[in-house]
Write a protein that binds this DNA or RNA. Structure first.
Lengths: 214, 214
DNA sequence: ACAGATTACCGATCATCGATCACTTATCAA
DNA sequence: TTGATAAGTGATCGATGATCGGTAATCTGT
């Protein structure tokens, strides 16, 4: 007698798309704690309270769950940057804008890890949507564009004149990603006090973005 | 009749510890190309030309293979740093020392990925030896110590006086790791010309390490 | 030359993994 | 009441990391 069930599916009416959110919430928590490859689809299903095949009614694969979290993390980061990056006339203002990125990563290590630090198939970072990263529609490019525009803004004001703005933006991005990813990946390292470390780091990067000498 | 074999084991006399090296070489190449979780123990065994259980005669687990590669990558990096980091009296000299780290990562992306970028069990970076990263015997701390001493050297000469040397060293390390890991992980991103990007990045970091203002 | 110990290796097998399948149950529209 | 649809399940697939008992080649001591 296969397929017999004694529990009642659909606990409440119109549970429709909420299951999908439950799955994503559980997956985000578990991926952050145990890593993408340390969590099985059965673990996720158990955390949600459904059977394992049920996940495949909402996602085509485990990677697609990670890709959705990846895309959402980028959208959240972009939303924060759009709200937070305003005037960039002083070093403190530039540093504050850069902190938005770093604070996002440190406050959402699960999302940041899923978005930036988990190796996907073939050693590449998992990307939702088109696989061609030169496509500006790929999540993450919008976030980087905000940084790029900020640097271009500074350049138009005659700051950071000696360097190509594009290169400078990439250097600054790398500087921010490096600190966030290391703080997340190596919690056992004897780091300096975090607030001072982050504050000094963003001031360093902001100063480099604004310096007038070559 | 189980266990029957028609090929001859031990092709040449005294092949003893060479198998271990063959396994490590194959694993390094495959991990770099397909990622730690994109390569199975059967793939490694096939590349070496042995059966899969044979790997377990030389390593306790797949993770131990990765851990050995991790430790070797660190030793190689440390050797390069010890040889290359000398006088740090000019900005160019400091930048050249920092380039040793970045060039190592870009020239050995397989090793760098295994050492710094692959998430291990429980989302932590896989580490050979003691799990306590505050232990200085952990691979990687020696490499960082060289950087720390260089920064302390600058500090003793009255450069970078405004900042805590330890914090500065961690910021610089993060800046280097960020660029290397992003260049490796996101090859499809529209990066600026690599040589100019790297040269500008290390000059930026070196300038921060040596600046006299607060 | 021979016997025992050691080295190096293999086929078979295990639990678990991501994924697919046929099937059942609950709900709703006609 | 009936048919369609949404939602979920147990059984099962090939592949994975790891373990087991057993075999063939080599070495050592006599």
């Amino acid at each position: 007698m296969p397929g017999t069930l004694h529990r009642s599916p659909r606990k409440a009416k119109g549970a429709g798309a909420e299951r999908r959110e439950e799955i994503l919430a559980a997956a985000l928590r578990l991926f952050g704690e145990y890593g993408l490859y340390g969590v099985s689809t059965r673990h996720i299903a158990q955390a949600v309270g459904v059977s394992q095949p049920t996940l495949y009614a909402y996602f085509a694969s485990k990677d697609e769950i990670a890709a959705e979290l990846h895309a959402r993390a980028f959208r959240e980061l972009e939303a924060r940057l759009k709200l937070g990056v305003r005037d960039v006339d002083t070093l403190e203002a530039v540093a504050a804008s850069l902190r938005i990125y770093i604070d996002f990563g440190l406050e959402n290590p699960d999302a940041y890890r899923v978005a930036f630090m988990i190796e996907g198939p073939h050693g590449r970072v998992a990307v939702a949507g088109p696989a061609d990263e030169s496509d500006v529609s790929v999540p993450g490019h919008t976030a980087f564009d905000i940084l790029r525009r900020m640097i271009a803004d500074l350049h138009a004001r005659g700051l950071g004149a000696g360097d190509d703005p594009e290169r400078m933006a990439q250097s600054i991005w790398a500087g921010m990603h490096g600190l966030v990813s290391l703080l997340i990946a190596r919690p056992g390292f004897p780091w300096a006090e975090r607030e001072a470390l982050v504050a000094g780091h963003v001031r360093m990067l902001a100063a480099m973005a604004m310096r007038r000498d070559g």
